[in-house]
Amino acid sequence: MKKLIGITLAVSALLILVGCEGEGDGLVAPDVTYTVTDDGATLALEWNAVDGADGYYIYADGILIDSTTGLFYDATVPAGFYGVAAYAGDEESATDEVDCTPVETASITVYGNSDPAPDHPSGIGFTAAGACVTLALSEQTNWPDIDFYFDDANFAQLTIVSPGDHVPPYNDEENATAASGTDYDALEIAAGMGNYITQRTLAENAVLSFWIDPDGDGWGDANDHFGKMKIVSITGAAAPYTAVIDCAYQPIAGLRWVVTQ
């Protein structure tokens, strides 16, 4: 009887050991962090060393683009997602991803400020989450949140203007736009420094890069954000004009990537 019990215990112990084999021994995913460099053109990825890893695979939008044995990678090609996975021989860990997709808001209707009706807003602002919302200029409580306003009272044509350029200013932000062609989805990185201006005449089908620079002190702040805007339509033979726009806002501070496909 004692012998039977001993055999049973030994078999059970063996089964438990066999059943647990591998648990905790497989490759774990690296923990990826990032910084934005090169005036917003590069996403510098870093991660911790994974025990047992031979190296690391780099993925862009789910496609393997490179591998390295180091613990960093400079991503210079804009993408929606960058991921890093550890590998050892044929074994591969799960991928830790950085989400670089911009927040898109489509079909926003804005009105030139020569139309003072409160239900015809002339201002837009981006929320902390990156959504674009319209804001009536007549409501002074909106002023701190205005990132751009549309002016056809001081200009013959509809013009996008930084709120800090208005006299008196709606707020102190020095936000600006840059001309970026006419193909919204083809624009994957917002224009570089030196191409922006705080007032720009709008034309139908134009695509603009925009730069939210609340401090007006150039690139590099944690509150600098970039994005792109498509002027879908402008209606009105003269002021007051109405425009419909699409926007994509990059939530990662300082990063100029705006991949929307």
């Binding site: 056809d152 009272a153 001081n154 930084s162 600006a176 201006i197 705080t198 007006g216 003269a238």
Partner: peptide
């Protein structure tokens, strides 16, 4: 000349950056 529109304050010169 263009028709005058509703005044809405002014605009200071733009900034290039």
């Amino acid at each position: 000349v263009t028709k005058p529109t509703t005044p809405s304050g002014g605009v200071k010169p733009p900034t290039q950056k």
